[in-house]
Design a protein around this nucleic acid. Structure first.
Lengths: 224, 224
DNA sequence: AGATTATTCAATAGATTGCTTGAATGGTCA
DNA sequence: TGACCATTCAAGCAATCTATTGAATAATCT
């Protein structure tokens, strides 16, 4: 190993790795990942996040502050509440990439996914083809997240129907169209429950594992 | 916030976040990021890495073991040495994404980059256009990394000329072609030094910040 | 077999992190 | 103004992480 190779990294460059490392470290906590997962659907107040994750308010606040300090989140005031939001789409993108990599590297996660998502519920078609069919009006795409989530990160072509309203709304569906459902991503169970409900009602229904973010990425990939 | 939203994450799902978090945490140390940076160029032995990063052998070994335990690296024996390598291209991809995000989120890093890379050295053309010009034989692309690195992660269309040999090899270049140089990525100084050398020799030379991985990604993006 | 070499293991100290508790802040509303 | 509310702050303890040291291992060579 030559001497030149070694001394190409003086102090300054070390600091670069420290800085990048801090961001990675900030992602390295299950509590904070849950927060990112929630915020990648829609902005939320501290209390909302605390309630959804089951962590204490103080703890949640501190995690949020750390995420904000590292630049991943931004906060705005809204009356008494402080609303946190993802600062850049690239944050969501990295979170998705991290999930992908984690799943590739540990089969445990694939096992976890199949446990959450009964394999028979999953769409035999890839997301790209499904989106094509939806665009050609040959299939229905349903977004069963909470309505405030669907409103914040909508998927074009999808019908936003919160899980609670699905039983009502399903009556308006054409029986001869395949129905595809998505929720918050791979490890969200709402879509599975929705597919079961739809099948019981006689529909040909499947679940997509993709999140709104990925589905939208497919759409824009297509444009260019 | 509805009760249903809350109880959608039972124990199992918590474990998923723990697992993903462990991978992120593994990326959260400057020492390990330096290792990833080195290994994303080519496989290396423990000692080689230790020497390049300046960390002790024992410490390097432990970091490598942790990276391997989390599934990011794989190890093979070669005589007395143990050669570590990146296990999946997605690991390199995530490392690149992390750098991109870090740079977007903290201007400090952009400052660091401009400090390393004098702005006048940088290519006015984007990497994609440069690659096009190279393909059309209107420009020369030079890879100044160590030869064992270029051999392991080659960039098609690039001339692999280690920095040490550049002074010799430059005589074979056509004076009227623009020369573009890359090394290990954004924070590697070899390319800057090479550009200075080339300019002193009368060439119209620029540096690319992209790594071999990204340059190859551009090439395959193009195919589909 | 014994010496050599590259790597790993084991034990340790200091620093950092995660969560809890209870008090403090600083907007908002009557 | 004072009461109220969502959030933050400050202090503390247990658990984890990092780098160091010196010994142990395991493959190779004479």
């Amino acid at each position: 190993m030559s001497k030149r190779t070694e001394n190409r990294s003086p102090h300054q460059i070390h600091e670069v790795y420290v800085k990048i490392g801090k961001i990675a470290q900030t992602l390295g906590s299950p509590a904070r990942l849950k927060i990112l997962q929630l915020l990648s659907q829609s902005p939320r107040s501290v209390e909302q996040i605390s309630e959804a994750t089951g962590e204490s308010i103080a703890n949640t606040s501190q995690h949020l502050q750390r995420l904000a300090r590292e630049g991943l989140l931004a906060a705005t005031r809204q009356g008494l509440m402080r609303i946190y939001r993802i600062k850049s789409p690239n944050v969501t993108a990295l979170w998705e990439n991290l999930q992908d990599l984690a799943q590739e590297l540990s089969q445990d996660l694939t096992a976890a996914e199949t446990e959450i998502t009964d394999a028979t519920l999953r769409s035999p078609l890839g997301a790209r083809e499904v989106m094509d069919n939806v665009r050609k009006n040959r299939a229905i795409l349903v977004d069963v997240r909470e309505s405030f989530e669907s409103a914040e990160t909508p998927v074009s072509g999808a019908r936003a129907i919160p899980f609670e309203s699905l039983k009502q709304e399903l009556k308006t569906f054409h029986k001869d169209k395949t129905v595809y459902v998505f929720c918050r991503g791979r490890y969200c169970e709402l879509a599975s429950q929705a597919v079961r409900l739809l099948r019981n009602a006689g529909f040909n229904a499947f679940r997509l594992r993709e999140s709104s973010f990925k589905l939208n990425q497919l759409a824009t990939d297509r444009e260019r």
